[in-house]
Amino acid sequence: MEYIIQTNGLTKKIKEEELVSNINIHIKKGEIYGFLGQNGAGKTTVLKMLTGITSPSKGEILLFNEKLTEKNKSILTRVGSIIEYPVFFEHLTAFDNLKLHCEYLGFYDEQDINQALLLVNLKGIEGKIVKDFSLGMKQRLGIARAIITKPELIILDEPTNGLDPIGIKDMRNLIRMLNKEYGMTFVLSSHILGELEQIVDRVGVIHHGKLLNEMTLNDIRKERSDYIELVVTDVKHAVYLLEKDLHISNMKIIQDRKIRIYDMAHTQSEISRTLILHDIGIEEIQKHSNSLEDYFYQQINGGDLDD
């Protein structure tokens, strides 16, 4: 298995406070990896260490099977990134900012700058001072900067921040295109789980500075099937009827009056009809499709959305 990123026991401490501890990430070549976590969970701290912005207090980072250290940062030429939010030299033009970035990486081709600007729909305003850009435009310019040298790995921290719905869709398409056509590996962090769900292959959930799990989206879907959830007036009687009349065995009583049915052989109307015919009141019935959001909440607090 070829890993682009591997971390072993990655830990960051500031003044005795552990921001993240013992993080072991494994990101494969060519995949789109989603990094999930609440605000303050430690996502940005990990991403900052992966991009050389801060150094780990403990543990190691292997990028392209090469150890990233303060003394050996040459592998960062193969990485593009936006961490937190895109920062620029605001008094310079968009073009000058991109040119400066290329020069730092020992790479300069005016055509590539123009192509990157075209990909993020910023063509024609390259001569504009960045100070005059909106947040959305800065975000697009940040993406342009991250992809300009066609790096093998792109790390984007909250890449859809400040983008309008069309911008978000464009961004998604751009990431897909770069991943497919150029084989670029992406690490994306976002708090918009539905957004990530549409694009990532695998996710890692971080909570209170600890990596809880890494799983592919397919495995998440397999592991947790869809279910029908209903709130009834008489749980015991309802369960009895569901087993006897509808032969449903895969179900769970969640709370006093709430039942979760994982056996999807029967429709909501069949279930309702059976229960109503036996005078069981139904206060609520709803079909749930498992989403990344469910998985995320399950990981961080056992499925309780209110935490």
């Binding site: 991009t51 050389g52 912005i53 040459s74 592998i75 990486l105």
Partner: peptide, 16 residues
């Protein structure tokens, strides 16, 4: 102050 230093740190040069 402008956080552009983080950009410099992400380039393949040591802080020193």
């Amino acid at each position: 102050k402008n956080k552009t230093i983080s950009l410099s740190f992400s380039y393949p040069f040591s802080r020193q």
